[in-house]
C-alpha cells in the first residue's frame, strides 16, 4: 500500500453531506452540501426540510468531489467514512454508500470516528502538532478537551455536562434576534462590543468538565430583567456589548480549562478544532495564552473547522495502511476513549 494514499472521504453524521479527495497531504477537493452548488447538480430546488437529506445529496456530492479532483474511482487507494458518533439514519447513508462504492471501485473502506476526524483537522495538509498535545474539540454538538498521546491513543480530560459551547452561541443568538448559525453572527457583533459591559457567570469545575447551560439561562434572565417596554430599544443599542460579554464568558471558560490542562499534563502544543474554533475571540485569546504560557497554538484553516470530509480522509491517512472489516457498522454513540 502507498505511504501517501489517495483517499475519498465521506461524512454524513449530522447536517451536512460532505465528500473530499485527499492525496497524501494534498487536498484535491473538499465539497460540503451546504456550501456548494450541489442543488444545481441534483437538478432542482431543495426545500428547507432537506437540510439533512443525505440520501439525496450523497451521489452528487461524491461525484462533485471526484470531478473537482479530476479523480476516477480506480485512482483511489481507499474510502474513509464516518461511522459515528452521529444520527443513526444519517450515518447509515454514508456507510452504505461507502461500502458499495468501495466494492465497485475495488478499494478498502475505513470507518472513521467523527471526533477523531475533528482531531486531525489540523493535519489535513501538513504534519499538525507533534504528539503529545492537547486538543479542544468545540462545536455545536461537542465540547471536550482531549490529550492526544499518540495516533489512536486519546484521553478525554473533560467534557460538557449539559450544552455544547456552540449550542450556547446559537441559543443566545436567537435571544438577540441574530441569524442562524449563531456562532459567526455573535462573533461578528462581539468585535464591535464591550466585553466588560455585563459580567455573565463562568462555571468552573476542578475536573476540567464544562457547563454552558447556566450561562445561556443567565443571558435570558439579563434580558428579561429589562422592563418590557424598553427591551427592544436596549437590545438594539447594546446588541454588540451583550454579544461581546457573552462571548468573553465562553472564551474565558474554554481558555481557563486549556491553561489548567496544559499545566497538569506539561504539553507544549495545543490544538483547537471544531466549528467554534473559527471564533475570532477564542482564537485571539488562545494566541495570547500561548504567548503567556509559552505554548504553541495550532488552529485549523477556517474551512476545516465545520464538519467536512477532508478531516475524515486525514484521519484514515493517519492510521494508513489500514482497513475496516466488511462487518463495519455504524456506532451512533462512538466516543474517543
Amino acid at each position: 500500500m502507498p505511504a501517501s494514499p489517495v483517499l475519498l472521504g465521506i461524512e454524513t453524521s449530522c447536517d451536512d453531506t460532505a465528500a473530499a479527495v485527499l492525496d497524501g497531504t494534498t487536498l484535491r477537493s473538499n465539497v460540503v452540501s451546504s456550501q456548494h452548488d450541489v442543488h444545481a447538480d441534483y437538478g432542482g430546488i431543495v426545500p428547507e426540510l432537506a437540510s439533512r437529506n443525505h440520501e439525496r445529496y450523497i451521489g452528487p456530492v461524491v461525484q462533485h468531489a471526484l470531478d473537482e479532483a479530476d479523480c476516477a474511482p480506480g485512482d483511489l487507494d481507499g474510502v474513509a467514512v464516518t461511522c459515528g458518533p452521529g444520527l443513526p439514519g444519517a450515518l447509515l447513508v454514508g456507510l452504505s454508500f461507502a461500502k458499495s462504492f468501495g466494492y465497485a471501485a475495488r478499494c478498502p473502506v475505513v470507518g472513521v470516528n467523527h471526533l477523531e476526524g475533528h482531531l486531525y483537522s489540523t493535519h489535513i495538509t501538513g504534519q499538525g502538532p507533534p504528539m503529545p498535545y492537547l486538543s479542544l474539540i468545540v462545536s455545536g454538538g461537542h465540547t471536550q478537551l482531549v490529550h492526544v498521546s499518540d495516533i489512536g491513543s486519546y484521553t478525554v480530560l473533560g467534557q460538557t455536562r449539559d450544552d455544547a459551547a456552540g449550542e450556547a452561541f446559537d441559543k443566545v443568538a436567537q435571544m438577540l434576534d441574530l441569524d442562524y448559525p449563531g456562532g459567526p453572527a455573535v462573533d461578528r457583533r462581539a468585535q464591535q462590543g464591550d466585553p466588560t459591559f455585563h459580567d455573565f457567570p463562568r462555571s468552573r469545575f476542578d475536573d476540567l468538565s464544562f457547563s454552558f447551560s447556566g450561562l445561556k439561562t443567565s443571558v435570558l434572565y439579563f434580558l428579561r430583567d429589562i422592563p418590557e417596554g424598553e427591551r427592544d430599544a436596549f437590545v438594539e443599542a447594546h446588541r454588540a456589548d451583550i454579544c461581546a460579554s457573552f462571548q468573553q464568558a465562553v472564551v474565558d471558560v474554554l481558555v481557563d480549562a486549556v491553561r489548567r490542562a496544559a499545566l497538569d499534563t506539561g504539553v507544549e502544543h495545543v490544538a483547537v478544532v471544531g466549528g467554534v474554533s473559527a471564533n475570532r475571540g477564542l482564537r485571539d485569546a488562545l494566541q495570547m495564552l500561548g504567548t503567556e504560557q509559552d505554548l504553541h497554538i495550532h488552529l485549523p484553516d477556517p474551512q476545516f473547522c465545520m464538519d467536512n470530509a477532508a478531516m475524515i480522509a486525514a484521519s484514515a491517512r493517519m492510521h494508513w495502511p489500514t482497513t475496516s472489516p466488511l462487518t463495519l457498522d455504524i456506532n451512533p454513540r462512538l466516543t474517543l476513549a
Binding site: 449530522c14 458518533p85 444520527l87 443513526p88 460538557t160 449539559d162 450544552d163 455544547a164 456552540g166 447551560s213
Partner: peptide, 9 residues
C-alpha cells in the same frame, strides 16, 4: 447532555 445539535441521543 443536550441533543440540540445532534438531535437524538
Amino acid at each position: 447532555r443536550s441533543p440540540t445539535f445532534t438531535l437524538v441521543h
